[in-house]
Write a protein that binds this DNA or RNA. Structure first.
Length: 417
DNA sequence: AAAAAAG
């Protein structure tokens, strides 16, 4: 199968060829005909599967074929600014010969950005790619020409609901024409998403190519460590290994900030990436990472989904993500497009059960690598320890009189908020 | 549990 089988507009095909697209991916093969047949669509698919082109191509083809183009033909909603920007860049590449116009609408920029966005939304632009918050701000100021829109796409719908965008999304959809084509993409399909889809979609067709299994090309490893050992272990992993491009994930912004200063003190050239940075800084860092001017990025989960950077050969989970889905997304930053990569997770005692849950979710175990000798003993495996009866059941909670609670851990003040 | 997104 080739892209010519879809009978796309010639100019769109030119753009496709110039971007080096050859063979459609499974999601594209399945989704494109559905969109072309004017049905609504729910697709369960992760990034890296060719998901973005699977809706951009038929939507852009549809726009090329409109007898009269409305001021705004398509609205694409995405959870993060980086994803919105990335989609917009893909539109620009594909649209090169078509005359289709687009703009990414998101917050965090300067007043000039806001004015440009406002003008486009009031004067018309074929495709709008937006994060919900900023689009709402524009809708509140009025004059946004969405009343003749043909296509609505919700990308990473599960992530948008997780981020509390449900009400914003419903408000946005309330401003759109009832007759339109709606396409929803989500990495997971919990009941919450299904219910949400029922509100927005009309008799949708389903496509499912999602999997709880990470790509074959990812070598997964884990180390059991105490927190005090993590920095030194990380340093040795980075120094011993022959890696060109590395992402290190940590679960909070504070951890990301601390870790990047720590690693810098240890002599590594690293950049931190999180939402406390100015949007221009975020973009510059990501650009330099893509250019390979920056080789080590330390980031929060804002980087875990949707970011498509070629050539990342190592992902380190400095701690274990709480949600197995996030683990899959994080390690999926490496081994993209048929390449290989390594994913290493540092597991302390507190995270051990979360890590077991991830293994269960994937249906496979991850090799535990012994700590390098210079680090001394790591923690022993709490689930493998045997009690005096010789079985490996975990110890029962000690009986307590009067049901009192015993405080095992005090919350650190900086761990709050 | 925290992240992100509107200032």
């Amino acid at each position: 199968m080739t892209f010519t089988d879809f009978a796309f507009d010639d100019q769109l095909l030119d753009g496709l060829n110039s971007m080096g697209f050859k063979t459609p991916t499974p999601i594209q093969t399945q989704a494109i005909p559905i969109v072309q047949s004017a049905h609504d669509l729910i697709a369960c698919a992760q990034t890296g599967t060719g998901k973005t082109a699977s809706y951009l191509l038929p939507v852009m083809d549809g726009i090329c074929r409109l007898e009269k183009r409305p001021p705004i033909s398509a609205l694409i909603l995405a959870p993060t600014r980086e994803l919105a920007l990335q989609i917009d860049q893909q539109v620009e590449g594909l649209a090169y010969f078509t005359g289709i116009t687009s703009i990414a609408i998101y917050g965090g920029g300067n007043g000039i950005d806001y004015e440009q966005q406002r003008r486009s939304l009031r004067e018309g632009v074929d495709i709008v790619i937006a994060t919900p918050g900023r689009l709402i701000a524009h809708l509140n100021s009025g004059g946004v020409l969405l009343d003749q829109l043909k296509y609505l796409v919700l990308d990473e719908a599960d992530r948008m609901l997780d981020m509390g965008f449900q009400e914003d999304l419903l408000r946005i959809v309330g401003k759109l024409p009832k007759v339109r084509q709606t396409l929803m993409f989500s990495a997971t399909m919990p009941a919450k998403i299904r219910k949400f889809a029922e509100k927005l979609l009309n008799n949708p067709q389903h496509v499912n190519i999602a999997t709880s299994k990470p790509a074959e090309g990812i070598k997964q490893e884990a180390y059991r460590t105490f927190d005090e050992q993590k920095n030194k272990l990380l340093l040795s992993l980075l120094k011993e290994g022959d890696y060109n491009s590395i992402i290190i994930f940590a679960s909070t912004k504070e951890k990301v900030k601390h870790l990047s200063t720590d690693l810098r003190k240890l002599g590594l050239k690293v950049k931190a990436f999180h939402s406390d940075l100015k949007q221009e800084e975020r973009q510059e860092i990501l650009l330099n990472f893509k250019n390979k001017k920056v080789s080590v990025l330390i980031g929060t989960d804002v980087l875990s989904r949707g970011i498509d950077v070629d050539g990342i050969d190592l992902v380190v989970n400095f701690d274990v993500p709480g949600d197995p889905e996030d683990y899959i997304h994080r390690i999926g930053r490496t081994a993209r497009a048929e390449t290989t990569g390594t994913a290493i997770t540092l597991v302390n005692n507190k995270d051990f059960r979360k890590f077991k849950a991830i293994e269960e979710f994937m249906g496979r175990v991850v090799d535990i690598i012994p700590l390098p000798e210079f680090l001394g003993e790591g923690p022993s495996n709490p689930l493998a320890s045997t009690n005096k009866n010789g079985n490996n059941r975990r110890k029962k909670k000690p009986f307590r009189k009067n049901g009192q609670r015993k405080h095992f851990s005090k919350k650190k003040p900086d761990a709050v908020g």
